[in-house]
Amino acid sequence: MATESHSADAAASAPGMPQLDFSTFPNQIFWLVVTLVVIYFVLSRIALPRIGAVLAERAGTITNDLAAAEDLKLKAVAAEEAYNKALADARSAAQNIAAETKAKIQADLDKELAKADAEISARSAESEKAIAEIRNSAVESVKTVAKDTAKEIVAALGGSADAKSVTAAINARVKG
């Protein structure tokens, strides 16, 4: 404990504790009140509204950002769905086009085949006709040649051949 007396200090008259030196109380109380009033006005007028505004702004920013992120996420999901739908559409369209083209080609092919078949059959019919003609004309020639030859042979053998009977005989032979 400070029992020694100080030089000429006001506190010298105080008991052991300067805290109980009542002569300093008005001074302390006055300056404390001044201090507290200054702090109160600095805080309530400047510091606290400012910090409160910053905190509110931050909370707002965070909320907005979260909402925007949620929004973008939904948009991304929608975009993905649209993409998948477009892909499926394109696929079915491609299949349709392929099927249509196939059918068209098949139809054209069938038509061409039918035409070709018709032509082939027409040509073979023509050829058969031509062959038949050639055969007929060949038979005629054989008859003519046989008739002439027979006449000549008969004449050479000294007989006089009746043209009519020779022809009849040749015809009978050729037929047989």
Partner: peptide
């Protein structure tokens, strides 16, 4: 003197501690 540190004294001269 552990309590000396709590002594209130004027900073700019003078002996007595007035209100101001």
């Amino acid at each position: 003197k552990p309590m000396d540190q709590f002594t209130i004294s004027p900073m700019f001269g003078g002996d007595s501690v007035g209100m101001f």
